[in-house]
């Protein structure tokens, strides 16, 4: 990876956002909506369930914040590519001295920035509105966030690969892909709350171990290290598989002229 190239690509991304403040609405609006909906729902649950649901407010708000880390990381990768398609700049980038790894590196940084902006704002608001401090997760927050970032990047690469392969008609995958897995990701409920068949799928997703782990930390103050190891191992597999898929689709795109067709549409 060439840091100068990554810097240039990320700079372009920052210029896009600073030049178009309305994009900040897209970046902040939905996370805020989710925080408000889930936050007040849990306030309501807490008031009406009392001691039988003692940690409800913390895990639901924590789930909103951590889910957003995954979602924004995925978006960083997928939207990065689409920005070039929408502005008819795709060929300028792919005909420049930019390797696939430089490009992916820049999308990872973009995802990291998006996740950092929204999770910081959500974290502050959750303290103000619900007296919930995400830092209650202590040092566990670091592996949680890292694992969710990596899985988000992997999902972003998969979304982008499918968009390149299937063309602009598949653009909606940039937003839809994380929600395909959300029901099985144990974001708002535990894995054993799912039917047995779905549990198998859930256990194949690294993020389900993270959300389960978050609930364990908030409930018991401790995390089974085995879960963290499994999540990290699965993430290595997903990231490698997504990388192979992305490189393979780019090769197919160059063989079939898909990049130039994309640029002409």
């Amino acid at each position: 990876m060439n840091p100068h190239v990554i810097q240039a690509l990320v700079l372009r991304y920052l210029f896009l956002y600073t030049r178009t403040p309305v994009r900040m609405v897209e970046l902040l609006f939905w996370p805020l909506v989710h925080l408000l909906v889930w936050g007040y729902l849990t306030v309501f649950l807490q008031k009406n369930t009392g001691d039988s649901f003692p940690y409800a407010i913390t895990f639901l708000i924590g789930a909103v914040i951590l889910w957003d880390v995954l979602f924004r990381a995925q978006q960083g990768v997928a939207i990065f590519f689409l920005e070039d398609v929408w502005s008819r700049n795709l060929l300028n980038i792919f005909a420049a001295p930019v390797t696939t790894f430089d490009y992916l590196g820049a999308t990872y940084v973009a995802g990291l920035l998006r996740a950092a902006v929204t999770s910081t704002i959500l974290g502050v608001l959750s303290v103000i509105l619900y007296s919930f401090n995400v830092l209650e997760l202590r040092w566990y927050l670091v592996p949680f966030v890292l694992n969710l970032l990596v899985f988000g990047w992997a999902l972003g690469m998969i979304s982008t690969a499918l968009i390149v392969r299937w063309g602009p008609a598949a653009e909606t995958l940039a937003w839809a892909t994380p929600f395909f897995i959300q029901p099985f990701a144990a974001v708002f409920y535990p894995v054993d709350g799912l039917p047995v068949v779905m549990q198998a799928f859930s256990k194949a997703l690294p993020c389900s171990y993270i959300f389960e782990g978050m609930r364990d930390v908030l409930k018991d103050g401790d995390l089974p290290m085995r879960d963290l190891v499994i999540a990290s191992g699965l993430n290595v597999v997903y990231l490698a598989a997504a990388g192979v898929l992305f490189v393979s689709v780019l090769k197919t795109a160059r063989d079939k002229g898909l990049l130039t067709k994309f640029a002409a549409q």
Partner: peptide, 22 residues
Amino acid sequence: YTQLPGNLLVSQNLKVFGLLYR
């Protein structure tokens, strides 16, 4: 058949590509 990103200033677009080409 190509364009530079329409939201960026002329100078910003050239800066980005100048950095890409070092």
